[in-house]
């Protein structure tokens, strides 16, 4: 089995109101060194071993997991160790 770690982030050109609110809160807490906050999503997929895992992940990211009008995605594929 493969564990796929998918990271979804807002595109640079898209304003992130949530990130702005969190940054404001951090500044209010006196963490003035924080210069920007961008909030994204982290999704884990557990997938069967197959030759086209990456291809399948690209497809599900494009179709469902990310909205490529406003979001970018990247992912890491790891070997899932059975316990």
């Amino acid at each position: 089995m493969k564990k796929v770690k998918v990271y979804i982030t807002l595109k640079e050109s898209v304003l992130d109101p949530q990130g702005q609110a969190v940054m404001q809160s951090l500044h209010n807490m006196d963490y003035k060194d924080v210069k920007d906050v961008r909030i994204g999503k982290y999704i884990e997929l557990l997938m069967e071993d197959s030759a086209d895992v990456a291809e399948q992940v690209d497809t599900v990211c494009d179709k469902l997991l990310a909205n490529t009008v406003i979001e970018n995605y990247r992912y890491e594929i790891e070997e899932e160790v059975h316990s």
Partner: peptide
């Protein structure tokens, strides 16, 4: 929008 019948996407309201 998600179905692609119209262009663009929705973000959270500016003031959340």
């Amino acid at each position: 929008l998600e179905a692609g019948l119209l262009p663009g996407a929705m973000l959270k309201n500016k003031h959340l």
